[in-house]
Design a protein around this nucleic acid. Structure first.
Length: 358
DNA sequence: ATAGGGTTAG
């Protein structure tokens, strides 16, 4: 591969001398330009080549396509590809096309192409499968995600931890906690070593489901393996316990977090405040909220929305309105749910005259 | 592609 400076030298040489090299050399040049990220110029030379009646090799065409992908120029990619329709589709072309489809959000089309290629024995390799899997994770298509996971293993490509983390996260998001936990457990049997991120993802999933016992088991397991929970792991655990009304345990995790040197953040405070509010403890939430200003942790829209909703749920309209005014004064916005809760509360109370003052 | 994990609400 040419260095960038070599490409520049070649470019200026061609421009200043008007020298027209052999087509094969020009193809080489196109390849270098593409690999160096000079995609627009690569495309120009590529098109110039075609205009002189020469059809560039598959290798050259693929190199330009890959260049467009790496430079995230999808328009250029598809425009070029239109002009390549008659040329042969090889493995590299399939790899490029699937990646372009994934980047453009057309994961299902990418998957179709994968299946077509595999029928002909064209296996695009680990990274392409991984890209399809994360694409399907993003759109919440559990079935396809799982299919591809099995396919890639069948083709002897073993997903890395990153991919497994996405799979576990995707499964949890799609309420497939049992499957997610199975995959997590099978990881260890297969010889993978889940790291702190994967542990945190799984603990989060278990907490969401309310399976605190399993969550705690993993918590101690990761510590035993020498991994220290960080502020994210702590927050996941605190949130999980608060959600289930386990205030004492949540408090223990919270103070341990501080003892370990993790500072309180807006997020950790929001977790506590929303935890109190969802269990009819809005006054305790408010006490906690007041302490935030003392410790210098800035509240945000989430803090205020949680508090207002908490007060509304307990029909404490006056308190809710007070917090609402504070939110407005800070230039923050109430969420639709918060606003609806306030309106409902105001209608129920006698203070119908109290304006929400938009 | 040596990347990736958390908080409101329903």
């Amino acid at each position: 591969m040419a260095t960038n400076s070599a490409v520049k030298a070649a470019k200026s040489f061609l421009n200043t001398t008007g020298f027209s090299p052999e087509p094969t050399l020009l193809e080489q040049y196109v390849k270098c330009l593409s690999e160096d990220g000079l995609v627009e110029e690569a495309v120009d030379v590529y098109n110039a080549l075609k205009e002189t009646g020469i059809s560039p090799s598959v290798v050259t065409s693929n190199a330009v396509l890959l260049g467009c992908l790496k430079a995230r120029k999808l328009h250029l990619f598809w425009e070029l590809h239109k002009g390549m329709m008659e040329s042969e589709v090889d493995l590299e072309r399939i790899r490029c096309l699937i990646q372009a489809l994934c980047d453009g959000g057309e994961v299902s089309e990418g998957y179709e192409l994968l299946k077509q290629g595999l029928k002909q024995g064209l296996d695009p390799g680990h990274d392409v499968y991984a890209k399809l899997i994360s694409g399907f994770c993003k759109i919440g298509n559990y079935a396809c995600m799982s299919e591809i996971l099995h396919t890639m293993i069948a083709w002897n490509h073993f997903p890395n931890l990153y991919t497994y983390n996405e799979v576990i996260k995707g499964l949890c998001k799609n309420k497939k906690h049992v499957e997610a936990f199975c995959i997590f457990k099978s990881l260890k049997e297969k010889g993978y070593a889940p790291d702190r991120v994967v542990y945190t993802t799984m603990i989060h999933g278990l907490c969401e489901k309310g399976w605190l016992g399993s969550a705690r088991k993993l918590w101690f397991e990761m510590i035993k393996k020498g991994m220290q929970p960080n502020e994210l792991t702590y927050n996941v655990m605190i949130h999980g316990h608060l959600k289930r009304g386990e205030f004492v345990l949540a408090g223990e995790f919270y103070s341990e977090m501080l003892r370990k040197g993790y500072k309180e953040t807006t997020v950790s405070c929001n977790t506590v405040i929303s935890g109190f509010c969802s269990h009819g403890k809005s006054d305790e939430a408010f006490e906690f909220f007041k302490k935030m200003s003392e410790t210098g942790v800035a509240p945000d829209a989430i803090t205020y929305n949680a508090l207002i909703q908490g007060f509304c749920k307990e029909n404490k309209v006056e308190k809710g309105m007070k917090v609402y005014k504070e939110l407005k004064a800070l230039g923050l916005k109430p969420s639709v749910v918060t606003y609806a809760a306030l309106v409902r509360n105001l209608k129920m109370s006698d203070s119908v005259e109290t304006s929400l003052n938009f």
